[in-house]
Design a protein around this nucleic acid. Structure first.
Length: 469
DNA sequence: TTTTGAGTTGTTCGA
DNA sequence: GTCGAACAACTCAAA
C-alpha cells in the first residue's frame, strides 16, 4: 500500500466529510458516482472525500481463490491510484457504512447503482440505516441501466434482437470527465486478507484501471477486426479479455462503446448481451436461482451417489471428453474459460450428466474471476433451454464435434490436458480412435454422449407443455 | 386486430 | 462429402 496522503483525525469530526463507497466500479476515470461525491463535497465545503471499499463476507466466503486474488489485486491498484487513501474494511456493509458515516460525520454517501437482487436489498437496507445521511446513487455499471429499455407497451424484452435494436435506439451518454482531486484517508483500514499462492504457470492477468485500458487498447489493435470470425476459437487469443475488467468496473462499457466503429457490430452485441441479461435479471430477480421457464421445475434430474460422482468428475475436468475437461481445468487454474467452452461444458453437465443447471452455475460463480450473476445465470439458462431463448429442447452440444470445429488445431485441449499431449492436431479430440490414445494416462469416457443425448431428449419431452412463467 | 416471419451460439439423418 | 429437413414452439414487431 502506498503512503497515505492526508489523514483525517477524530479532532476534525465536527466538520462534514463525504464518503465514496466503491463496489463494482473500481476506477477513477469516467466514474459519475465519484464525480458526484467530489462535487457534493466541494459544494458543501466539506473537508474531503473518503474512498471506501467493504469486503462483504457474504460474497467473499463464496468466492474461489482466483476471484479473491483478482479482487485484492484490483483493490491494491485502486488504492495506489488514490495515493493510499482507500479505506478497506472486512464486514457487513449494513453495519460498517452507517458506522463509518457517523464516525467521520459524513454529509452524504455516494455509490453507483447496483441492480442485482442482493445488491438492491443491501443498498435499501444501508439507505434506511443511514437515517438522515443520504445514499446518493449516480450511474451504474451499464451503458443503459436495467429497466430503461422497454417495449412500446412498457414491458421488458424477452428476446435479444429486439432488445438490441431498442438499446441502440435509446443510446447512451458519453464518458464522464475525470476529475483530479485529493482524497482523505483515515486510520483503521484493515490489511487485505491473505490468500494462498495460485497454481504455478497460470498467473492472474493484471488487474486495475490501467491494466483494463492496456488490454482494451491491445484488443482494438490486434483482434477487434477479426473478432467476428475468430471469437469462437478457444485455441487463439481472439476474445477481448475484458470480462473481468468489466466485472469490477475497472473500465466502463460506454468507454468501450464510444471507441467502436459501425463495423464492430458483433463485439457491440456482446456488450449488449451483458446489458440484456442484467435487464432480464432486474425484472425477474428470482431467475438467478429459478428457471425462467417454470416447466423446468418438473424436470427429473439425476440424483444419488452416481450423480455426485459425475458432478465431481465434471468439476475436476475428468469426464473423458477432451474439450469439456480442458475447459473445466482452465476454469480451475485460471478462473476463466472461453465462452464457447462455457457452453460446451454447461451443456455436458445438463444434458449428458442430467444435473440441474443451478449446480453448474454456482460452481462457475465461485470460480470465475469475471463472475457476473446476470450473465452467468442466464448463460446457463440459455444452454439448459429454460431461459430467454425460444425453447430449444432439442439443442444438445456434441463435445467432440464442437472440439473439432472450434479447436481445429487441438492446441487448446493439449494446453490444459497434458495427457493428450502426444496426439497431434484434432486427433486430441478423439483419443478413443487411436491405438495410443490413452498412452498419456487420460481417463476413459464417463458416459456415452450419443446415449445420454437421447435420455436428455426424453427428459425434455416429458416436461414439454404450455409454459406458465 | 390478426397474421406472419425471424430469432446468438446445434445435431442428426437421409437424400 | 454436402445439403436440407426435422426437431418443436415462445416472443416480438412489422405488415
Amino acid at each position: 500500500m502506498a503512503e497515505r496522503s492526508r489523514h483525517l483525525c477524530a479532532f476534525y469530526a465536527a466538520e462534514m466529510s463525504t464518503i465514496m463507497w466503491f463496489r463494482r466500479d473500481l476506477r477513477l476515470g469516467d466514474n459519475p458516482a465519484m464525480n458526484a461525491a467530489l462535487d457534493a463535497d466541494r459544494a458543501g465545503r466539506n473537508i474531503g472525500v473518503l474512498p471506501v471499499f467493504i469486503i462483504d463476507p457474504l460474497l467473499w466466503d463464496s468466492a474461489g481463490e482466483v476471484r479473491r486474488a483478482y479482487l485484492l489485486q484490483s483493490l491494491n491498484s485502486l488504492d495506489d491510484s488514490l495515493k493510499g487513501s482507500l479505506h478497506i474494511r472486512l464486514g457487513d456493509p449494513r453495519v460498517l457504512i452507517p458506522e463509518l458515516a457517523r464516525s467521520i460525520n459524513a454529509a452524504s454517501v455516494h455509490i453507483s447503482e447496483d441492480f442485482g437482487p442482493y445488491g438492491r436489498r443491501r443498498d435499501a437496507e444501508v439507505d434506511r440505516l443511514l437515517g438522515a445521511v443520504p445514499l446518493v446513487r449516480t450511474g451504474s455499471p451499464y451503458a443503459i441501466s436495467p429497466g430503461r429499455v422497454t417495449k412500446s407497451d412498457g414491458q421488458p424484452y424477452r428476446v435479444f434482437t429486439p432488445f438490441y435494436r431498442a438499446w441502440l435506439e435509446h443510446g447512451w451518454r458519453l464518458p464522464a470527465q475525470t476529475i483530479e482531486q485529493d482524497f482523505i484517508g483515515i486510520d483503521g483500514s484493515q490489511s487485505l486478507p491473505s490468500i494462498p499462492p495460485l497454481r504455478e504457470g497460470f498467473p492472474l492477468p493484471p488487474a486495475g484501471e490501467a491494466a483494463a485500458w492496456e488490454q482494451w487498447k491491445w484488443f482494438q489493435e490486434h483482434e477487434l477486426a477479426r473478432y467476428s470470425s475468430q471469437r469462437n476459437r478457444p485455441d487463439l487469443a481472439a476474445t477481448s479479455g475484458m470480462s473481468h475488467h468489466l466485472r469490477w468496473g475497472e473500465i466502463h462499457p460506454r468507454s468501450m462503446l464510444s471507441a467502436l466503429s459501425p463495423a464492430d457490430e458483433v463485439f457491440r452485441k456482446e456488450l449488449c448481451w451483458r446489458e440484456f441479461y442484467a435487464d432480464v435479471l432486474f425484472h425477474s430477480p428470482d431467475s438467478a436461482r429459478l428457471s425462467l421457464d417454470q416447466r423446468f421445475d418438473a424436470m427429473r434430474w439425476a440424483e444419488g451417489e452416481q450423480a455426485e460422482f459425475a458432478f465431481e468428475q465434471w468439476r475436476l475436468g475428468a469426464t473423458g471428453y477432451p474439450l469439456v475437461d480442458a475447459g473445466m481445468r482452465q476454469l480451475l487454474s485460471e478462473g476463466w474459460m472461453h465462452n464457447r467452452v462455457r457452453m460446451v461444458t454447461a451443456s455436458f453437465l445438463v444434458k449428458d450428466l442430467h444435473l440441474p443447471w443451478q449446480r453448474g452455475a454456482s460452481w462457475f460463480m465461485q470460480q470465475l474471476r469475471d463472475a457476473d450473476l446476470a450473465s452467468n445465470s442466464h448463460g446457463w439458462q440459455w444452454v439448459a433451454g429454460c431461459g430467454t431463448d425460444a425453447s430449444p429442447f432439442y439443442r444438445v452440444f456434441n463435445p467432440v464435434l464442437q472440439g473439432v470445429k472450434f479447436d481445429p488445431t487441438g492446441d487448446y485441449v493439449r494446453r490444459y490436458v497434458p495427457e493428450l499431449g502426444h496426439l497431434e492436431g484434432s486427433r486430441a479430440h478423439e483419443p478413443w480412435k487411436h491405438a495410443d490414445g490413452y498412452a498419456g494416462g487420460y481417463s476413459p469416457r464417463l458416459v456415452d454422449h450419443a446415449a445420454e443425448r437421447l435420455v436428455a431428449l426424453d427428459d425434455y419431452a416429458l416436461i414439454r407443455q404450455p409454459s406458465q412463467r
